[in-house]
């Protein structure tokens, strides 16, 4: 393991008016890890992702990626540093085609200018070719589900599971080092969810991405995560392997409420 963690968050606070969404959170991810963030609804998991990806400005604390601070950067700059994410409520570019969805997210990795497009320069043509090829490659990661005639279909006609897959493909196309997956299997049936769990494993093992995921489906968390961090009311109440965390009485209480104590 490298000496500097890939993502290092210390003393993070996010306050919305009177609501302390994230309260003094410390969090690290090392390269090549799969870390699951779990917790009951409203625990601040998505806010935590929003703070990393720059959509929410932290009230206090430090976020460093590969040793450099991310604070004050616009979301697009953070993406170009190498952090990509998906959204809990799938947010594709619905009226763009499947292929365009993964082409547009290569924006920060490409450099053609308007003049290139107008004059159809060699740079434009080679770059378009590369962008298209890379887009198809990323879509090919999900087998044939998003390839072939699907390339030119608008994202809005995809099935729910395929939209979730396309979201991940779109994040992959930004060529990130770290991918934040916000409930990747939510709403999928058990078969699809098991398949996607396998693919998330492949994302790390074959593609070399580091992954942080929020997930409610405990079987997915158990199967793929190296470490689990449990959030409740914006605080990390437990950390460790899935086995350690699932035995933690505080975690059980957070999930099941007071009644669990009695049993």
């Amino acid at each position: 393991m490298s000496s500097v963690p890939m993502l290092e968050i210390t003393g993070l606070h996010v306050v919305f008016g009177g609501l302390h969404a994230i309260n003094d959170l410390d969090f690290t991810v090392d390269e090549g890890e799969i870390v699951a963030v779990i917790g009951p609804n409203g625990a601040g998991k998505t806010t935590f992702f929003n703070a990393i990806s720059g959509m929410v400005k932290p009230t206090e604390g430090q976020i460093a990626f590969e040793g450099r601070s991310l604070l004050g950067l616009d979301p697009n700059k953070i993406t170009s540093r190498g952090i990509a994410r998906t959204f809990q409520n799938v947010r594709l570019f619905a009226n763009m085609t499947v292929l365009e969805n993964v082409m547009v997210s290569q924006h920060c990795r490409t450099g053609q200018r308007m003049v290139d497009a107008l004059l159809q320069t060699r740079r434009f043509r080679t770059e378009e070719e590369q962008v298209r090829a890379r887009g198809k490659e990323v879509l090919g990661f999900f087998g044939t589900r998003l390839t072939g005639y699907r390339f030119d279909q608008p994202a809005s006609v995809l099935s729910y599971a395929n939209r979730r897959r396309l979201e991940i493909a779109r994040a992959m196309a930004t060529s990130p080092k770290l991918i934040l997956l916000d409930e990747p299997v939510a709403g999928m049936n058990p078969v699809e969810s098991a398949e996607l769990t396998g693919l998330i494993g492949k994302l790390r093992d074959e593609m070399g991405y580091t992954i942080v995921l929020i997930e409610h489906d405990m079987s997915v968390v158990r199967d793929i995560s190296d470490r689990v961090v449990v959030l409740d009311h914006g605080e990390a109440i437990a950390r460790g392997t899935y086995a350690e965390v699932s035995a933690n009485p505080q975690v059980i209480e957070a999930y099941l409420g007071q009644s669990a104590k009695g049993s």
Binding site: M55, F93, R109, A171
Partner: peptide
Amino acid sequence: MAVREDETVAEVMGVDT
């Protein structure tokens, strides 16, 4: 087009909106 579809997401996907 990405900005038109969803400006927030476009920015998170690396577009300098």
